[in-house]
């Protein structure tokens, strides 16, 4: 047709925050239906590790005990945010589920952040239970356990971003699952085992893992007089990695959704 068509007005886009809220709400309900058994698994796994490590490091307030309790609590976040998230996005991509979002006028960030937020929220009860059990077992003070309410969203964001990127960038669904599991194993080994017992090379690897800073921030609050400046610095690193990893995840989502 030689005459250009008069273009009709486009329908408005969905706003960032309203659509983030809608995705969050939907994902949280989805988690309620489908993920409760897995939350139990995550919590029991962490409590199991606490019981096991109690035999290794003894039931006293030592640096190792602090690392074990903080690491086990944050491990619940790693299990859900990294492992399950990688699997979820891997599946969504492999089965064409991303088409649903890609054909709606919704910002990529809303989908990624809404889903990540829902997964992170979902870890709250398990993390708190693990922390409480850990404090009881190792006789640690739990007055500053409120810090978990900061650690969970920050470590959750960092790990969920990594998980989503793994799930969206992996060439196949099975590889996404495998990478999620490997990431979880790394969070387990590097987060729960006391850093002072590790070889230097492994410690560097530990420093690269975003959850490490969440673990350290929480572990420091068990001190009689926590060094809040260092705690805040740890959390700031967590937040920075969170922003980076969620940006990466958003980019990966866009790439996967519009992939030829």
């Amino acid at each position: 047709m030689s005459v250009p068509l008069p273009a009709i007005e486009l329908a408005p886009r969905a706003g960032l925050l309203p659509s983030l809220g809608a995705v969050y709400r939907a994902q949280l309900s989805r988690a309620r239906v489908a993920r409760i058994p897995l939350l139990f698994v995550a919590t029991f796994q962490s409590i199991g590790i606490l019981v096991m490590m109690r035999g290794v490091v003894g039931a006293h307030d030592t640096e190792a005990a602090r690392d074990v309790v903080a690491g086990s609590a944050v491990l619940v976040v790693a299990f859900v945010a990294l492992n399950l998230f990688a699997q979820y996005f891997g599946k969504l991509r492999a089965t064409g589920g991303l088409d649903h979002y890609a054909t709606l006028p919704v910002p990529a960030a809303s989908v990624v952040l809404g889903t990540a937020g829902a997964y992170a929220s979902f870890t709250v009860p398990g993390t708190l239970v693990t922390a409480a059990v850990g404090c009881a077992m190792f006789q640690l003070p739990w007055v500053h356990a409120w810090i978990l309410l900061v650690v969970i969203p920050l470590a959750g964001a960092a790990l969920a971003g990594v998980g989503a990127a793994l799930g969206l960038l992996a060439p196949r669904q099975e590889i996404a699952t495998l990478l999620g599991q490997l990431g979880m194993s790394a969070a387990l080994l590097l987060g729960v085992l006391p850093a002072s017992h590790m070889p230097t090379a492994i410690r560097w690897l530990r420093d690269l893992l975003p959850s490490t800073y969440g673990v350290e921030a929480f572990a420091r609050t068990f001190a009689p007089q926590p060094d809040w400046a260092v705690v805040v610095a740890d959390l700031a690193v967590c937040a920075a990695v969170g922003v980076l990893s969620l940006t990466l995840a958003t980019w990966a989502y866009r790439r996967a959704a519009t992939r030829a």
Binding site: G15, L92, G97
Partner: peptide, 21 residues
């Protein structure tokens, strides 16, 4: 339908409407 599979019918429609602006 994988993106909607675990939502209830009501929530699937309502969420899609929200994401359609």
């Amino acid at each position: 339908s994988t993106a909607l599979d675990e939502l209830t019918v009501h929530l699937a429609i309502e969420t899609t409407a929200r994401l359609r602006g």
